[in-house]
Computed example of a mutant assay.
Amino acid sequence: MEPDQNNLASLFPSVAAQLRGAMSNLYLAASQLCPAAARELDPELDARAALLDQSYYQLLRLVTNLSAAARLADDGPFPLQDRDIVALVSELCSRTAALAPLRGIELRFLCAMEQHICALDPESLEQLLYHLLSNAFKFTPAGGTVTVELRSARKQLLLSVTDTGCGIPEDRLLTLFDRYLHGENRDPLPHGMGLGLPLCRRIAEGHGGMLMAESRPGKGTRFTLALPDRQVGGSVRDVPFDYSGGFNRTLLALADALPADAFLLRSQT
């Protein structure tokens, strides 16, 4: 029997809530066993603790996706506010570019606009872009390039993430955005449950836009988010959605795509 999407989406946040409490206790215990002061004095301890931190961030990333999965059952618009999309994307790319050398790749940001105000949901748009960058990092070999481009065209804003990685077979493109419903199409571990891209598509639709993918095996992949180029007059969301839980958002978003060295104390200063 084909699983019901709405039932799955409503179940995931409940599972996430139960996991989050136990994970908080685990993180507190680990922090007490490996305090920062001791890690600074002992590189070997820091290396072991970095592996522990990475594993925690990977679990937190999964739990965050499970929490956000309730959005998959909702087809309504997102609450939007007028923000400078150039500044938002530029800042995120700057933070991510600093970590790209740990993967042996280069991150480029291309944008001819100095500023552009449009209606968006900052937290969810950031989440979408981080998901796309994480996927690009995972599948781009050392020496490759990930390019983020933001441009305006025909009353739309086009935000694309292009990599020089392995590409996606044509048959997998057909179910790329609903893989969590199709177990046979999920990525192998540690690449997750396949929730990321469905969430990205939902975020695009919540903005009144769409998310498209194009790829050729061996030639890389491009995801393009098309958003209406509009403003709403400064409507602000009442309660912000902090998907990071107070942790480093960049490390959280890229936890599956970065080596453990990214979690060493010296890499975070």
Rank of each mutant, 00 (worst) to 15 (best):
L102T: 07
L102R: 13
R108D: 13
F109K: 13
Q115S: 15
I117C: 02
E123G: 15
L125C: 14
E126F: 01
L128C: 12
L128G: 09
L129F: 00
H131K: 10
L132Q: 08
L132K: 08
L133A: 08
L133W: 07
K138M: 13
F139K: 02
F139R: 08
A142L: 07
G143W: 09
T147Y: 07
R151W: 09
A153P: 00
S160I: 02
V161I: 10
G165N: 05
G167I: 03
I168M: 09
P169Q: 08
P169F: 01
E170A: 15
R172W: 03
L173M: 10
L176I: 15
F177T: 02
D178L: 09
D178M: 13
R179E: 01
R179K: 09
R179G: 01
Y180P: 01
H182Y: 00
G183C: 04
G183Y: 03
N185Q: 14
R186G: 00
P188N: 07
P188A: 14
P188R: 12
H191V: 11
G192P: 01
M193H: 05
L199T: 11
H207S: 11
K219L: 06
G220F: 04
T221L: 03
R222M: 11
R222L: 00
L225R: 03
P228C: 14
P228E: 01
D229S: 05
R230Y: 02
G233L: 04
G234S: 07
S235L: 10
P240S: 15
F241Y: 12
D242V: 05
Y243W: 15
